[in-house]
Design a protein around this nucleic acid. Sequence first.
RNA 1: GCCCUAGUAGCUCAGAGGAAGAGCAACAGCCUCCUAAGCUGUAGGUCACAGGUUCGAAUCCUGUCUAGGGCGCCA
Length: 556
Amino acid sequence: MNIVEQVKEQLKAEIAQAIEKAGLAAAGEIPAIILETPKEKEHGDFAANIAMQLARIAKKAPRAIAEEITEHLDKSKASIEKMEIAGPGFINFFLDNGYLRELIPAVMEADQSYGCSEFGNNQKVQVEFVSANPTGNLHLGHARGAAVGDSLCNILEKAGYDVTREYYINDAGNQINNLAYSVEARYFEALGKEASMPEDGYHGEDVRQFGKELADTYGDRFIDTPEEERLAFFREYGLKREMEKLKQDLHDFHVDFDVWFSETSLYEEGKVEETLQLLREKEEVYDQDGAVWFRSTTYGDDKDRVLVKSDGSYTYLMPDIAYHKNKFERGFAKVINIWGADHHGYIPRMQAAVQALGYQKNQLETQIIQMVNLYENGERVKMSKRTGKAVTLRDLMEEVGIDATRYFFAMRSADTHLDFDLSLAKSQSNENPVYYVQYAHARLSSIFRQASEKGFSFDPNADLTPIASEKEYDLLKKIGEFPEAVALAADKYAPHRMTTYLHELASVFHSFYNAERVVDPEDEKKTKARLALVKAVQITLRNGMKMLGVSAPEKM
RNA sequence: GCCCUAGUAGCUCAGAGGAAGAGCAACAGCCUCCUAAGCUGUAGGUCACAGGUUCGAAUCCUGUCUAGGGCGCCA
């Protein structure tokens, strides 16, 4: 708990005591006291709505209650400077903000771990995200999922969870057979032979490239090999190359996984069969029309779902249930899936499956990444997956850059449709929100360069008493909110709360920067104190940007 | 038809019981001074609509309208 939270707790305790002393309510009747940080400056440093909440218990008008609370409050104990009753019965507290200075050494001490909290109690959490089929390039939707997923993982880690990042490789289904056929077709094509793409083939440039590679390396060697053998080779080759590409693209996007989980491994280890057997024993499945059905309606799904088709093969759901069983067996208290919007109808059946396996419904959390529409110069950019004509993650990184792409995706709540404005993201101007935050960091760095040029050395033990202006306190308040902001973002699975926070922090800093001078050769004492303050800002900003996978430039 | 998302300033979006918010765009100012990719100020709103719950609703409930998406023995 940092000093801001301590002061808040103290103030809450004093309010509770005042309520008792005034005889407004007995100790057991007092509702949880909430202190808000008002948006408006005129509403003080903290505001309490307790008087309104007590209206019914005390059977008095809220403003009268507020009056009595303030009369019985021990101002000396909670560094209260002034109290005002406002609106329907808010009590606005104006504090002596000197205590905020204590944040500076605390932030410097914590350094890279500033922002961490015990919120997650070291609970084991698994986040599965991206998990795109290894059959082509990562497109816009995957890019959004990667940015949101990775940022969420960083946030969860900072909030005190033990996080595993996982990618589920769909390397067992039909789509891999189609990949093999597609590679084959491109291979023949590269050799100048007649070749036709399968109905559901993959038309991407990458697959064409693989065909060329194979033709260059092996010549016409595969033309006479038996089809089965040839396809097996192409399948392996295609999968290997696709995975290399995926990993590289994601890595370059600053997204790395702890576990790459192969669907095939579930089959090889008999996990799929084992899971089906378990469901049968638990009488969660039944046979009908030659197929095996999962009674998902027991757990609120619209209809029962087929697990084994009448031709004996599994549906997609079956290995996926086995996969989730495996997740929980690895000891994760919570499993978070980040899925594309096209999977959203799939949530109820997966939740049903988790319950059928004997786990709690809320142990599985599914976040949906909504659709991304691309705009350029005000025009909607049309994309077609079939022809492989789609904007890829790689395109975005090259055209827009990693920082802007990651920031843009992290900026909006994930479960709403996103209009991605390419022109805006590419523009090197103040219209682009990512620069606002980065510029703040560059300015901070510049201050330290200037300071050292002018002979000031940064002193972590500087006397901080010169820090006393409103702008400085505003900065410190914002810095003090950081761990709470991280924990809240973790609690709501909402990375976009971090971009909001960083924007606010940058804004308070820019405002301070314009109003006050840090490096002042005339006043060494003040300069040293402010350098320490500004160092705390820099640490906070940098930690936040790192969570979003955005770089913190020294110069711009 | 059923289910999910959304509808808040001109535009893009936060806010999810407590005092209507940000960025961009518009308008008016600010660089002899640590980076003007910045700052300061002005203007801009029936929070889609109608009911309900509450001391209090953009926020919760019910219904309606509009937009997008999902509803396979595909993955």
